[in-house]
Design a protein around this nucleic acid. Structure first.
Lengths: 207, 207
DNA sequence: TACTGTGAAGAACTTCACAGCA
DNA sequence: TGCTGTGAAGTTCTTCACAGTA
């Protein structure tokens, strides 16, 4: 299949969220205009995004809400559950483990790792914190598909290298640093300092 | 000045981070090649990004690390401190308040608001949680420049509307929903579900 | 010589506009 | 008629390639 841009994929996530909302509201049909308005984009963009994957609508009518939801979930690979490991039992890690939004969408944080002996053995919800040295042996027994790096920046690259070695292909990185990785590994960065600095840039003219 | 794209602004943040690293390492001069390599971009991109704002380098030599750092901080508006209010004293909020990366870069979380009476009055570090109804009167006395929305999705839009009413022009939104806002207000979204779903999409071919 | 700064070329993304179908 | 699906046009972003200079 043709390469889909990241912006398209992100918009698809948005459509999915809106569709679920429409579904809860009992709406059965939706037009590209409605999706565009609520999703901060244009009707043409919505139709183009969807058209990369097929023709899901009915001309003159719009899209069936349930059908399109189903198809989008399928396209995004959200029909399955993912086992997620969290590396770094700090403040961000703690917030992530407790966040309902993950498990609700099929992302289960099944293990937490840290190198701080005082944290190892403590329980976070129903997940025990394990020493990061157990990573290799644990994953050999119970594989995961996604890893979240929430370590200090100084340890992030070494952590990623180990994850790559273990065959992990998808990583969410909260450490505020650019990580090197093979092309077949996807690394998504969440960097809150960058977001705030972008706001700072936007404010520079406001005094 | 010509409109600068968001991708350029985000790359500038990256260059700044690298420059600070180079500075700590005692490097005095840096080339676009070096910045590109470490910042996952191309030398031409680095030069183009910088050229929007002026000619900071010396041909044949490269850029002076200190000078370029200074200029980038200036361009990004990072020469001043920002007063930040956090609305929503939940898990994410708690992680954010404790996160050193913010205050280190001049973003000071000076107040926390929630509508849960059991949280109001408790202390988070050196910041007391206040009832969200005090928002208007508090900001009249001690203005802020940036607000962080960390409320449930259901309350995010109403919260943003109040912030806009109060004249806030920059908002960081952690609620997993698209918010409507006037064009002169900048809203940056951090949506961890979208990041994970992007990873899910990337994994769809891996089985 | 080594590297910047930049117009021009190229690629990617978005919007337009309309044919085609329910 | 109303709304989708899509080639074509338009716009924005990235890369190229080279003139210019310390």
């Amino acid at each position: 299949m043709r390469k889909i841009s990241e912006s398209t994929v992100r918009r698809l996530c948005g459509y999915l969220r809106l569709l679920e909302e429409f579904q809860r509201a009992g709406k059965t049909t939706v037009s590209s205009d409605e999706l565009a308005l609520r999703g901060h984009t244009t009707p043409a963009q919505v139709r183009k995004d969807l058209s990369f994957f097929g023709s899901f609508g009915k001309r003159g009518l719009g899209y069936d809400v349930c059908d399109l939801t189903e198809r989008l979930r399928d396209i995004m690979g959200l029909d399955k559950n993912y086992r997620v490991a969290l590396i770094g039992a700090g403040k961000i890690g703690s917030a992530l483990v407790q966040y309902r939004g993950f498990s609700d969408r099929g992302f289960d944080i099944v293990s937490v790792y840290d190198n701080d002996e005082t944290k190892v053995g403590t329980s976070w919800g129903d997940v025990a914190v394990r020493h990061v040295s157990a990573l290799e042996s644990d994953l050999a027994v119970a594989p995961i598909q996604i890893a979240i790096i929430a370590t200090p920046a100084s340890e992030a690259q070494a952590t990623l290298d180990r994850l790559v070695q273990l065959g992990i292909k998808a990583v969410l990185n909260f450490a505020p640093t650019q990580l090197d990785h093979p092309a077949d590994v996807t690394v998504q960065n969440v960097n809150m300092a960058v977001e705030l600095e972008t706001l700072s840039y936007a404010l520079r003219s406001c005094g």
